[in-house]
Write a protein that binds this DNA or RNA. Sequence first.
DNA 1: ACAAGACGCTTGTTTCTACAACTATTCCCG
DNA 2: CGGGAATAGTTGTAGAAACAAGCGTCTTGT
Lengths: 174, 174
Amino acid sequence: MDDVPWLDRTQLRAWVRLVAVLELLPGVLDAQLRRDAGLTHFEYYVLAILSESDERTLRMSELARLTNATPPRLSHVVRRLEDRGLVERLPCPSDARSTNAHLTEAGWKKVVEAAPGHVRTVREHVIDALSGEQVDQLAAVSEAILGRLDPSGEMAATYRRFDEEPGATSSASG
Amino acid sequence: MDDVPWLDRTQLRAWVRLVAVLELLPGVLDAQLRRDAGLTHFEYYVLAILSESDERTLRMSELARLTNATPPRLSHVVRRLEDRGLVERLPCPSDARSTNAHLTEAGWKKVVEAAPGHVRTVREHVIDALSGEQVDQLAAVSEAILGRLDPSGEMAATYRRFDEEPGATSSASG
DNA sequence: ACAAGACGCTTGTTTCTACAACTATTCCCG
DNA sequence: CGGGAATAGTTGTAGAAACAAGCGTCTTGT
């Protein structure tokens, strides 16, 4: 640990605030979704990603990459979602090692039903607290940080999915 | 859920990026601290807050407020830290209901030893990815969000602790 | 064609967190 | 004072995550 340059006052101010956001925001998202839809934020995230995917289906490994979950974690989460009928697991036809996770009709309905409350929470606690300029700054700052957190772009398909222009028939996002 | 205004493309861009940061950054912080110091980020956070407190001591309820922990969570965490000799719990002289958490000498050494590696990680993954201007923007954006996440200012003493001017003899922060 | 290794996912174990229930002390108010 | 409510903290239990190990499948090299 040779000689790390300390953080100056300005950097420290930014960092301690970010840490506080990191500590508070996940709890707020979890609480709202858990209360109104019986889902953790991560579960909602999984369902939302599936809902936007081709055929509402993804291979487990791809889903793990996109959600930054380890294979065991995703396996457990998907099993629980399957128990609730929101997702089903099908053997992958092209590779018998692989499993496809598919959003069921009930899962789709669950996402559609949960989305408005979630968006409202996001607005109330984040977006509506910022000016339009600050929203852009937040995007740029996050993008820069993600360049370090995710250098190989594992999750990039997740957080860049709204960058293109016109947008096809999009669905429940967040 | 009456009629929630959806997020426009710009807002969505910012939000999905922030979610990705929320998903990735805690894991990075935990992994480094766990590997190099045998501490979770939350445990480090608790020790760091104590290290900056008067007498390196805080009442459990105050510590819970500052770290945004529920009382049971803090109780368990402090018990584990006490088992490792990093913290000790003393009855509060002025209120027999209350317990004081005090950072031991070993706990102090642990924080001092862990801080440089932690700061390095914070630099590598966040601060050094940003321009000076962006660091200020991050502070302002986070401050605005915290206004919604923490309206009653429970954690404010934590994330505003470096706002004053000259700064007394500060200690291991992060 | 077959063995060695890589890959994809699951299962099991331990650790941590949330929620609820409980004990003990203090405060409030008649 | 004395009794009810509020406060401070702990414990117990169930649910979710991290880590390690395991099993079946594919790929590669010879």
